[in-house]
Amino acid sequence: MKQDKRIRIITGHYGSGKTEFAVNYAIKLAKEKKKVVLVDLDIVNPYFRSREKKDMLERLGIKVIGSSLEGGGTDVPAISSSVFLPLQDKSYEAIFDVGGDDVGARTLGRYHSYFQKENYDMFCVVNANRPETQDVYGAIKHIQAIQNVSRISITGLINNTHLLRETTPQDVLKGQRLIRQISEKLHIPIKYVSVLAEVAEKLPQQLDGEIFPIHLYMREDWMDGN
């Protein structure tokens, strides 16, 4: 995490778990760094957006920049001008939570001139249990489409293979096999293995990428289990 560049852009296929990873990453980063800002660039999803967790994140000292329209019920692709803040003020550590697929990544094009090789990382989150990214061909198709519209290169892959609370270590390892193939084909390193904290304990140590234990902040407690 320490080696990641100042601007971290989180992209991927929709439903891959970008927002959950971005929120977890921001919370972890805020424990080490002072000025952490989470930019929610999602103009695709109407529900489960990181800006809905603004209160919780701000209590943890994280600045949240979302839509220019306040309130959770807006269905308008309005992006706040404040997005420029962490791009122009280099004292901020920034995480960009981008909308799903190339459709969502299109928003990045607007800020293209700010992304220089030395100041940004763009991570692509992959869940091998999502129907469209179950194989190398499908996953690479999404990666290339995202790179094309954003006009910047993905610098790291994140294995986020899961089935929510039903996730087993086998799911994660299945994802790891897929992502290794993608990594070899595209010459992009595996940066993180994002996995539920309780499953992380059961994983072998020798994995490509840093094991990144997460909690499900975006999923309300009442949705699972009895």
């Binding site: 929709y14 439903g15 869940n127 249990n129 999502r130 129907p131 899961h162």
Partner: peptide, 14 residues
């Protein structure tokens, strides 16, 4: 095997 889907997507696939 189980896969992870969004509700609307799962309804359409079904």
């Amino acid at each position: 095997a189980k896969i992870l889907m969004k509700g609307n997507e799962a309804i359409a696939a079904a």
